[in-house]
Design a protein around this nucleic acid. Structure first.
Lengths: 168, 168
DNA sequence: CACTAATTTCTGAAAATATGGAAAATACAA
DNA sequence: TTGTATTTTCCATATTTTCAGAAATTAGTG
């Protein structure tokens, strides 16, 4: 397969993939493009290669920077800003986990804490089912929370090593 | 807190939560409602409690059944169908993992396999960066794939037990 | 069969989201 | 300053997604 074709496919699929994960298509495509680019790219480079407008590129690159997946690169003597993506897949994954945990899991757990105390007859089946469901989701969420925390802090080799032992 | 209020909040948040995860809001809300209902509900019950149209309820319940999260319940003597959600959180989680793996991770890995063989000068930095990125994502994906497989097959207690040992 | 209850599909409308491109703001150099 | 390159914001438009409600289909009943 030719490089150009493979690149196109990868960018397109990464975009589609991302959109199943709450990340918009364009943002994921820009991310894909930067991951396979050996050198940092400018906004104009991205515009040209993906055929999207300046405003769109700008917004999405800013989001990627917020997510900690892309960083600004200043090239001495150049006035333009350049951008480069983290290329270590482990770091990309833990960064995404960290952010999503903060934005989604943590608030959900806080809500579940609040919902845990219901007034009324504990024997009522509606109350019983509700508190039981909430309680179980909470317990599960807390486990997941701890596991993800450890994972984010961990070193890749340590993690994979232990994991392999576990899942032999 | 009153039960009714807590239920409302849970349903609303579960809906919002789901929409970050490629599951549409209504579908997640119906799922939430069924999880906290002690008895199976009919389409009309769901319509009434969530204020959504018959068509919408029908479509989304069908999707939930496809995902393996909800099952049809036939009550003898009753002509209506009733629906009930899996309430074991571990089963819910593994079911979702299983489905998403099948729908997203597996196709992505298949694509990456294809993209691994690029024609051209292996010294070219574009080719080098591309094959390296693809290769790393692939390796990572395969690890995740194996881990999720094990997890899906595993029993909850075994899994959590081992996990706790690992993440102490 | 015919009649009715219940489910499913379909369609256009509405809401939400993404996008392009111009205009405004900023940064830098002379 | 002033002029120019670059980035960022803004908002009208396009696209996608969600949704209600009607129509069509299916299944149960006498």
């Amino acid at each position: 397969m030719k490089l150009a074709e493979a690149q196109q496919q990868f960018i397109a699929s990464w975009g589609a993939f991302g959109s199943h994960w709450g990340i918009n298509r364009t943002m994921a495509q820009i991310h894909a493009l930067l991951m396979i680019s050996p050198d940092p790219l400018s906004q104009d480079d991205v515009m040209e290669q993906l055929n999207i407008s300046r405003g769109n590129v700008n917004m999405n690159i800013r989001d990627l920077i917020d997510w900690g997946l892309v960083s600004r690169i200043l090239i001495p003597g150049e006035r333009k800003e350049y951008f480069s993506a983290e290329k270590d897949v482990w770091k990309v994954a833990t960064q995404i986990i960290k952010e999503r945990k903060k934005r989604e899991l943590d608030p959900m757990l806080r809500l579940l804490d609040q919902l845990d105390n219901i007034e009324g007859d504990k024997k009522d089946k509606h109350i019983k089912q509700f508190t039981e469901t909430i309680g179980n989701i909470r317990k599960f969420g807390q486990q997941a929370d701890r596991m993800l925390d450890t994972m984010v802090k961990a070193d890749e080799n340590w993690f994979l090593g232990n994991l392999l032992k576990l899942f032999k």
